[in-house]
């Protein structure tokens, strides 16, 4: 199956180094402390942040840090075939854990001891790269909630098909069975905070593929910064400044 045509175009018309179209919106859920919608191509994800607030379960309270909890759920209609069990299956649990660890590493939790921060991510449409979209959405939501962070966490995936490194795989390319590298990246301090890979890849090629994903993350970081700047300007405007 040809994923990259000899003319250098992928199945959907992108070139191998190009990402899908991204779109982000802050403040989708009014009731939440912070929320954001993040779209990467056809993958659409809503993230809502509640916190910092009082810890619900006293036994879990940490005395010098905030408790970060995360839940990832997919809507019934998010995938092509209708899913029966949207929560609690193993994949959701694993992704929840991954997102939690990634965000926890960059939130300045010591500033909010004995409190709890809840991050809820809901996938509305899944078309490959859901993990990355969730992390990006969570970053935006946290920023909207005003929670102090070390840096923005951005994430992007890349793969290797037909002997070409590809950036930002969609569902068809993902299910091709080739390797899939997901990278979570802190752009300002230039550090990788999440790295996951499926399938097999020789080491020399792996470096290229990871580098490509990091470039993708940097591009997303720029976009996120723009969105936040835009949002702040809007807030200023509404306040009448």
């Amino acid at each position: 199956m040809e994923f990259v045509s000899p003319e250098g175009l992928r199945l959907d018309g992108r070139r191998p180094m190009e990402m899908r179209q991204i779109r982000a919106e802050i403040g989708a859920v009014a009731k939440a402390d912070g929320s954001a919608v993040f779209e990467m191509g056809n993958t659409k994800v809503i993230a809502a942040v509640y916190g910092p607030r009082e810890v619900q379960n006293r036994t879990q309270q940490i005395n010098d840090q905030a408790l970060v909890r995360c839940e990832y759920s997919m809507a019934n209609f998010s995938t092509g075939d209708r899913m029966r069990k949207p929560k609690g299956d193993r994949r959701s649990t694993e992704i929840s854990l991954v997102i939690r660890q990634t965000m926890e590493a960059c939130i300045l939790t010591h500033l909010m001891p004995r409190s709890q921060i809840d991050i809820f991510v809901q996938v509305l449409q899944a078309d490959g790269g859901t993990r990355s979209a969730c992390i990006n959405a969570a970053t935006l939501a946290l920023a909207d909630a005003g929670i102090p962070m070390r840096d923005l966490v951005t994430s992007c995936s890349s793969g290797y098909l037909n002997s070409t490194p590809l950036l930002d795989l969609n569902y068809v390319e993902d299910s091709a069975g080739g390797p899939d590298v997901t990278v979570g990246f802190l752009p300002k301090v230039d550090k990788v905070t999440l790295l996951q890979m499926d399938s097999k890849l020789p080491i020399d090629i792996f470096e290229n593929v990871m580098q490509l994903a990091i470039e993708g993350c940097k591009a997303i970081a720029n976009y996120i910064r723009e969105i936040m700047l835009e949002n702040t300007k809007q807030l200023e405007y509404r306040r009448g400044i």
């Binding site: 993230a47 509640y50 619900q56 759920s73 929560k87 809840d118 809820f120």
Partner: peptide, 15 residues
Amino acid sequence: IYVDCSPTAAPMFEG
């Protein structure tokens, strides 16, 4: 018909 309350709506809808 099936309704799902997303935890984004309220933290108590989690799990």
